[in-house]
Design a protein around this nucleic acid. Structure first.
Length: 920
RNA sequence: AGGCGCGUAGCUCAGUGGUUAGAGCACUUGCUUGACAUGCAAGGGGUCGGUGGUUCAACUCCACUCGCGCCUACCA
């Protein structure tokens, strides 16, 4: 073995071997365990959030596979309609082509080409991460099978009246020329203005003042509204005003919606361009005048002078023209929420169009019930509130998109505009008894990508066919995803799953935190703070990293800023950490919080952990490998020493803890338990304790060798779900000497607590040993005595146990504490001036002669005494408190009594020793 | 406006109604100890955001409060 762990060497080799051997496929035996991957955008790349979630899904899958479950981690990707279409359009643009120039069919060919080209990126990343997905079952939302599921669902929902087509106000992206769902609109506060306009009363005397943040929409006003109880305007209700510029007469109406306190208490009503106004318009049967085109310039429904103007230009002209007419009352600065498309970044227009909708309210009921009843459990539980919050206020879901890339809506129109829905054109005709002579054309639009994603848990398993996989793995076990897509995806999967399979799509939803950068910022391309997980695995030079951060930017003006930030954050680029270190980091960061700051130092720490494990294995192999000595016998009885018994007991408790934490999705605690056992117990203590026991003449040698190997072997299995590569590599070498066999660690059983039962006596005795060694080390450390200098040690006031344990373990003590000699003083023997450590009643003394500074020792003892004194004060305070004595459980009182006695003894001993120092 | 979360060591974070509140990183001191300097040993560092309450006992439970953040819905 190499002296340090070199991850790159082994990781690729390992994975290829696993994959080629078919180890990722479900075994077909045992309890089904299934995780559906949240399908990433096929043309994208995996970011840190994916890497994080994949680590968790893979750890769970490997863990359950090792528990003997029939484990399936189902991989796949989605077609990401808008995002992908945008990318391909941009590529066309660079080549001097346009989507419309190419035509639908040719364009789609281009998209498929791009999909095939870039789709590999994700699978390459996943393989590098060690993801044990069943590649043979990989699915894509636009696959034939999944597309059939989409059509089936659409047709059935349509026939049940749960999908309808209608003219509604929707969120319209005027750049992408498509409707988007309300979830795809990001509203942010921006600086704007509030313009006050005068609308002259038709009756001739005076005017009303309305306020607006969007002056250009006044061209489509069809009313002015006031609050019905507003005394100022009550007598005007029913009258009309003359809409300036448009020169239309519009009514003054009364509606509760108006807040009389805000502005002037008069609101202009533009039903075709505002969601609230739209509702008011419906209530009052107002006309809807659509004054925009699909590109948000002024349409022919507006007065001629404004037609064709862009919306921002139209705004300037409207304001200027009103000003000219003396109708501009004033302009105030005003902060308002501006809705922008999450893809285009452009201001979204409420826009009146024909779209397809899902009646979400009807699907929501059972979906709410499924979580309320506990059929689906959110982890952490609190996220169910977010889910309920949204589900109780759910709006109909606009599912049509004016795009080309996606599932084309299975609806056909005749010349009269009648719509016929079916699985395909022939089916549509058959269902509606239309003969072939009637010309039909298919709806041009496609479905929202999330529509197909909502079917993912069952469409990937073959639905609508009743496949064996569906029967076995559905409902799936757990969904692992981020809180940012609870509405987009989780809720919709629950609704669709229940509707079409009658069962929940998953039993549990584990909601992960969001990976943020070191400063707590969300990682995004525009901030230039995204990290490719592969760059942490393989490392990357600063220059290459800068190049990566600043290419393909949407806002090139930020380049220098990003460069500076990158140089500051990663002055030397990123070193190679390896997959396992990254995975361990993700596991360790997976606590219950919802923001996770990614800290490079943590990765480094866990890289060191891998190296520690590697070297522990090196040590074990040096000592157990048959070529160095006789083979370790695992099949016959050998006596086990105290350290052997102790480490086995500790391992058993670690295994139990890890199982517990996996069950509760506390990967941070699992990682911590594994880290602490490996480093602080196995390496720091057991390996050190094994050294004297491995001397040739030691009777403990056989037991120690066996324990070294068997504990390491089991530890590797315990670690494997989190760090698959290094454990596989080491296991291959350790298993044979530990009496284990098999082709791969990933097919072994997870270690069992039963094989490593608790041994409380061994734990107590080893704790004594540790305390002794620590006592001596403390004196050595604080007195600055060289580590290689062997110390003479005197002991006083030993209990029977002390004597017994000392006798049994003096050689261990001598080695680990680097002791020259141990001498037991009788009670009447006056010890020489010494530094002292206390172990219960027993005193450990290190004679000072030439070694120890009296003043330093005095300070050390005083510090210890003061600390003890403080504690004693607190403890005695409690014991003097009658209420405490009366109300606290007896066990707690006893504990305080014992503590008090021990502290008193300690203080007495320390004071005596301090008095001795004074006499020097 | 409503909902949710966070505030613990210099930094990133665990934590429990009753241990001396922990870890990693950083810091100080000493060490090339035959697995590992990606290491070993010892050490310093926190009135657990604030106030009040419940309790024999609060970092932990409750109320209020300050600060930060997120989500949903918004007053034109």
């Amino acid at each position: 073995m190499e002296k340090t762990y070199q991850p790159a060497d082994i990781e690729n080799r390992c994975y290829e071997n696993w994959e080629a051997s078919g180890f990722f496929a479900p075994t077909g035996k045992g309890k089904p365990y299934c995780i559906m991957i949240p399908p990433p955008n096929v043309t994208g790349t995996l970011h840190m959030g994916h890497a994080f979630q994949h680590t968790i899904m893979d750890a769970l899958t490997r863990y359950h596979r090792m528990q003997g479950h029939n484990a399936l981690w189902q991989p796949g990707t989605d077609h990401a309609g808008i995002a992908t279409q945008m990318v391909v359009e941009r590529q066309l643009e660079e080549a001097g082509q346009t989507r419309t120039g190419l035509g639908r069919e040719a364009f789609l060919e281009k998209v498929w080409e791009w999909k095939n080209h870039s789709g590999n990126t994700i699978s390459r990343q996943m393989r590098r991460m060690g993801d044990s997905v069943d590649w043979s079952r990989e699915r894509f939302t636009m696959d034939e099978g999944l597309s059939r599921a989409v059509t089936e669902v659409f047709v059935r929902l349509y026939e049940e009246g749960l999908i309808y087509r209608g003219t509604r106000l929707v969120n319209w992206d005027p750049v992408l020329h498509t409707a988007v769902s309300d979830l795809e609109v990001i509203s942010k506060e921006e600086d704007g203005h509030l313009w006050h306009f005068r609308y002259p009363l038709t009756s001739g005397d005076g005017y009303l003042v309305v306020a607006t943040t969007r002056p250009e929409t006044m061209l489509g006003d069809t009313a002015v509204a006031v609050h019905p109880d507003d005394e100022r305007y009550r007598q005007l209700v029913g009258q009309t005003v003359r809409l300036p510029l448009a020169d239309r007469e519009i009514p003054i109406i009364a509606d509760d919606y108006v807040d009389p306190e805000f502005g002037t208490g008069c609101v202009k009503i533009t039903p075709a361009h505002d969601f609230n106004d739209y509702e008011i318009g419906l209530r009052h049967k107002l006309p809807q005048i659509n004054i925009f085109t699909e590109g948000a310039s002024i349409s022919q429904n507006a007065p001629r002078p404004y037609q064709g103007l862009d919306r921002t230009e139209a705004r300037r002209r409207v304001v200027a023209d009103l000003d000219k007419l003396g109708l501009l009352e004033g302009i105030d600065d005003h902060k308002l929420m501006v809705p922008r498309g999450d893809r285009s970044g452009e201001i979204i227009e409420p826009f009146l169009t024909d779209q397809w909708f899902v009646k979400a309210t009807e699907l929501a009921g059972p979906a709410i019930e499924a979580v309320e009843s506990g059929q689906i459990r959110f982890v952490p539980e609190n996220w169910s509130k977010t889910y309920f919050e949204w589900m109780h206020n759910i709006q109909d879901w606009c599912i049509s998109r004016q795009l080309w890339w996606g599932h084309r809506i299975p609806a056909w129109f005749d010349a009269a505009g009648n719509v016929y829905v079916g699985h395909d054109e022939a089916d549509a005709r058959a269902r509606h008894s239309l003969d072939d002579t009637i010309p039909l054309h298919q709806d041009e639009d496609v479905l929202d990508t999330w529509f197909s994603s909502a079917l993912w848990p069952f469409s990937t398993l073959g639905w609508p066919e009743q496949t064996p996989e569906l029967k076995t793995f559905y409902p799936t076990t757990v969904l692992v995803t981020g809180f940012d897509i609870i509405f987009f995806w989780v809720a919709r999967m629950i609704m669709m799953g229940l509707k079409f399979t009658g069962e929940v799509p998953f039993r549990e939803v584990y909601i992960t935190g969001l990976i943020r950068d070191h400063d707590g910022q969300k990682m995004s391309k525009s901030k230039g703070n995204v990290i490719d997980p592969l760059d942490l695995i393989d490392g990357i030079e600063l220059e290459a990293l800068l190049e990566k951060q600043t290419t393909g930017m949407m806002q090139p003006q930020l380049k220098s800023k990003i460069e500076r930030a990158t140089r500051k954050q990663f002055p030397d680029g990123i070193p190679e950490f390896g997959t396992d270190a990254l995975r361990f980091t993700f596991a360790a960061l997976a606590s219950t919080g919802r923001d996770i700051r990614f800290d490079l130092n943590r990765v480094e720490g866990y890289r060191n952990f891998c190296n520690k494990l590697w070297n522990a294995a090196r040590y074990v192999l040096m000592n157990v490998a048959p070529e160095n000595s006789t083979a370790v016998r695992v099949d016959e009885y050998v006596p086990l020493s105290l350290p052997d018994r102790w480490i086995r007991s500790r391992l058993g408790k670690t295994i139990a803890a890890v199982q517990d934490h996996f069950g509760n999705y506390r990967f941070d605690l699992a990682a911590k338990a594994l880290y602490e056992f490996t480093w602080n117990e196995y390496c720091d203590w057991y390996l050190e304790l094994s050294k004297p026991a491995l001397q040739d003449d030691s009777p403990e040698k056989p037991g120690t060798r066996r324990t070294l190997a068997t504990v390491l072997e089991a530890l590797l299995r315990c670690l494997h779900p989190v760090v698959p590569f290094i454990t596989e590599e080491i296991w291959g070498k350790v298993a044979p000497v530990a009496g284990a066999s098999g082709t791969s660690i990933m097919l072994q059983n997870f270690p069992s607590v039963d094989d490593f039962p608790a041994d409380e006596q061994a734990e107590t005795e080893l704790a004594w040993l540790q305390a002794f060694i620590l006592g001596v080390r403390q004196i050595r450390g604080e007195m600055d005595i060289a580590p290689n200098r062997r110390l003479p040690v005197l002991l006083r006031d030993l209990s029977g146990d002390d004597k017994r344990l000392l006798k049994a373990h003096s050689s261990r003590l001598t080695q680990l504490a680097r002791i020259q000699s141990i001498e037991i003083l009788d009670d009447d023997q006056e010890p020489p001036p010494s530094a002292m450590a206390l172990m219960g009643g027993m005193k450990i003394l290190v004679p000072m002669a030439g070694l120890i500074d009296v003043e330093a020792e005095r300070q050390r003892l005083e510090k210890n005494r003061d600390r003890a004194q403080n504690n004693l004060g607190r403890t005695q305070g409690k014991l003097r408190n009658e209420q405490f004595m009366a109300n606290a459980p007896p066990a707690v009182v006893d504990k305080e009594r014992a503590k008090s006695a021990a502290l008193e003894q300690e203080i007495t001993q320390l004071n005596e020793q301090l008095a001795r120092l004074d006499q020097l």
